[in-house]
Design a binder for these strands. Structure first.
Lengths: 228, 228
DNA sequence: AAAAAGATTAATAAAAGGTTAATTTTATTA
DNA sequence: TAATAAAATTAACCTTTTATTAATCTTTTT
């Protein structure tokens, strides 16, 4: 889970943002001033810090400088009512990854934070084609590859479609009828024979991990079981 | 040097931003519409794309979708007079790294672009010498040259475009459909035959380094694998 | 035990892919 | 503008891959 530190002295805005970000599945710690923020940073690790600029005692810019010097790798962004150009430029010159002008729209804040963390964590060359974890196997439906340790098994289109179909209903029964009409287009005697052949292929490929099994329910269909 | 593609139909704003960004030591190419932008992207590599949202013919959101599907690794940001929340959210949901509301302040644009490039991908897409490292090869899409040690292979335009296309989606599947519609313009039987010929050429050129291979996924597409 | 359904391996034919060469198109230059 | 060169497309031919069908054996159900 992504963990954020919010530094905001205004208690109503602080509370609102904290609750909203929690709802959006962020882990969030709220500090009400700079000193507290620095104390928290000594003990915990964060993915991103969100700083208000105008705060009593220590303003956000000063705090950002300290954070940058002490923990240079943690990205931070500003929230500010001061939307003067000079302030925005100052924010970025201190190394901010973003500068949001108040009034803050919580939804916009969330999508910006997500865009930032996605880029930062996952990196530039992240594939949109994701891999499915299947016990000790990795299955990539886009490239039709099934990996087990160093070994790569190239699946055919039908094999890949069938495995994906079963995986989407894993631990649930997939009816012959549904598989055949969805993948083959027609539910008849010959296609059903064909389905048996492909089930057999998949079982062979998946035999390296006993936690992954394709079970038959007599006269009903098949079932991809993924154990614990 | 960092290389940007600006897509902006308004000529005075386009000119202003182009000149300003040049002054700030960016290499910048300005396209006035989506079609032109896609043509340029076939031949050149960029670190960041800046898109206007409201444009005739093809709007920025539609263009962004195409860019994301074809060249998933290039970050893009929006410039827009439409500051409605729904537009900002749409921009980020398409995968934008930032969304700036017009009127644009050039200085703020520059610091945001710099912050992005510093954080995200310094020198990932365009290296200083503009050359792409491909195992033991150096590929320069601008000069269409592929170097291996002392040897220089001159690629034709098609060969170069195809290699660039595959490289931008390296280790991911590039669908026949996407390659053909992007490079040939039309996805038909004959162009697909032609594609096979060019794949064959590239494989021959790239055969000196076994870490670089072009794999086929039957009935789906091709995949440039760059190992370790 | 008989009949039906399922599993597995192998054989076959169709489609897709790979490669080289010939032909057409496009660009260059004399 | 005609001759030449280069590039892209099309053709021809061969190889590989794939889905289907067949053949045979095993399991399940009644």
């Amino acid at each position: 889970m992504r963990k954020l530190l919010l530094v905001e002295d205004d208690s109503s805005l602080g509370y609102l943002l904290t609750e909203y970000l929690k709802m959006k599945d962020f882990q969030i710690v709220w500090a009400t001033n700079g000193i507290e923020a620095l104390e928290i940073l000594k003990k915990e690790v964060f993915d991103l810090i969100i700083l208000d600029v105008m705060m009593p005692e220590m303003d956000g810019f000063t705090l950002a400088e300290k954070i940058r010097d002490l923990y240079s790798s943690i990205p931070f962004m500003f929230l500010s009512a001061r939307s003067l150009k000079i302030d925005v430029l100052k924010g970025f010159s201190l190394g901010a990854v973003d500068y949001l002008k108040k009034p803050i729209d919580e939804e916009e804040l969330v999508v910006r934070v997500e865009a930032l963390l996605n880029r930062l964590n996952i990196g530039i060359n992240t594939s949109l084609q994701e891999e499915i974890i299947l016990g000790g196997y990795l299955f990539n439906p886009a490239t039709q590859e099934l990996k087990y340790k160093d070994e790569i098994i190239s699946l055919t289109s039908r094999e890949s479609e069938l495995l994906l179909f079963l995986w989407r209903r894993k631990n649930e029964l997939s009816l012959h009828k549904d598989i055949l009409t969805s993948i083959w287009g027609e539910n008849d005697y010959f296609n059903r024979k064909s389905l048996n052949v492909f089930i057999s292929h998949l079982r062979k490929y998946l035999s390296k991990d006993p936690r992954i099994v394709i079970e038959n329910v007599h006269n009903k269909g098949f079932l991809l079981k993924v154990k614990e």
